[in-house]
């Protein structure tokens, strides 16, 4: 049996909003670490990996590992019935046909109970090799979102160039070209607004902007995003939460 109580339903709502345009039918894999998800998009260009750590739930009770096969459009409909500040409890049996979602307001005078039908989803899990990235850039997630939205107006793809001087996002399309360069800077008063670049060697890679714009839907989860790059491996875009993360991996464009 699973019983997992989350202080704020808004956390799960934001996670689902962040990934539901990329992946549709997913398994929530529940084990001792927490509730995890790994799924590729239909075209197998991007992969999303999510973990809500068991420490983030109180209580988190699980008798045996279970996979909850969920259609995210359906889950979104049920989660719309919760207020962001509601306490959310997820409950499921050991071989579940349904997932129970219970929403309680903070005053504890309203309890809503929903049952979501589960699906059998046969999903392959990919092993993600441990990677020492050549460059790791942390920056405000809103800034990254703005850059992606701006550049997609000119082109389908963006070249990300990380060097000691900074990180340059550049694109070129039918109407012209554009670039945004961010220099490393440390905002002492507001650390979340800092741009930090950890670099072992310069990297230049090109990615599809359509996917990056999609990843940016996770900006509500964290004010900071980390981009990790190495030549010839997928880009890692990570949004860290208090007790968990949403990570997106994007295969680079090749032969450009």
């Amino acid at each position: 049996m699973l019983e997992a109580r989350l202080e704020q339903a808004g956390v799960l709502k934001k996670v689902v909003d962040a990934i539901r345009d990329l992946v549709q039918d997913i398994n929530f894999d529940c084990n001792d670490s927490g509730i995890a998800l790994q799924a590729m998009d239909n075209s197998h260009v991007a992969l999303v990996s999510m973990l809500l750590k068991s420490e983030g739930f109180s209580p988190y009770r699980l008798d045996r590992n279970i996979a909850l096969g969920i259609n995210l459009t359906s889950l979104t409909k049920v989660l719309r019935c919760a207020q962001n500040e509601d306490i959310l409890t997820l409950k499921a049996e050991d071989t579940p046909d349904t997932l129970s979602l219970i929403f309680e307001n903070a005053e504890n005078d309203r309890i809503s109970e929903y049952e979501l039908k589960l699906m059998d989803i046969d999903q392959e899990h990919l092993g993600i090799p441990e990677t020492e990235y050549a460059a790791a850039i942390s920056m405000p997630s809103a800034e990254f979102q703005r850059i992606c939205r701006d550049l997609i107006q000119l082109s389908d793809s963006v070249t990300i160039e990380a060097s000691k001087e900074g990180v340059k996002f550049s694109c070129s399309g039918d109407i012209g070209s554009g670039s945004v360069t961010l220099r490393q800077q440390n905002n002492v008063d507001k650390p979340d607004l800092s741009t930090k670049i950890e670099l072992t060697e310069p990297v230049t890679l090109t990615f599809s902007l359509k996917y990056l714009v999609n990843f940016c839907k996770a900006s509500a989860l964290s004010s900071v995003v980390t981009l990790s790059l190495s030549n010839e491996v997928p880009l890692l875009v990570e949004y860290a939460m208090g007790s968990g993360f949403v990570r997106f991996y994007l295969a680079p464009k090749i032969g450009e």
């Binding site: 991996y249 994007l250 464009k253």
Partner: peptide, 14 residues
């Protein structure tokens, strides 16, 4: 999707 790599070719099947 010309020139677009696939994620399967980087990560291994479990």
């Amino acid at each position: 999707n010309p020139g677009q790599g696939s994620i399967n070719s980087y990560f291994f099947k479990k």
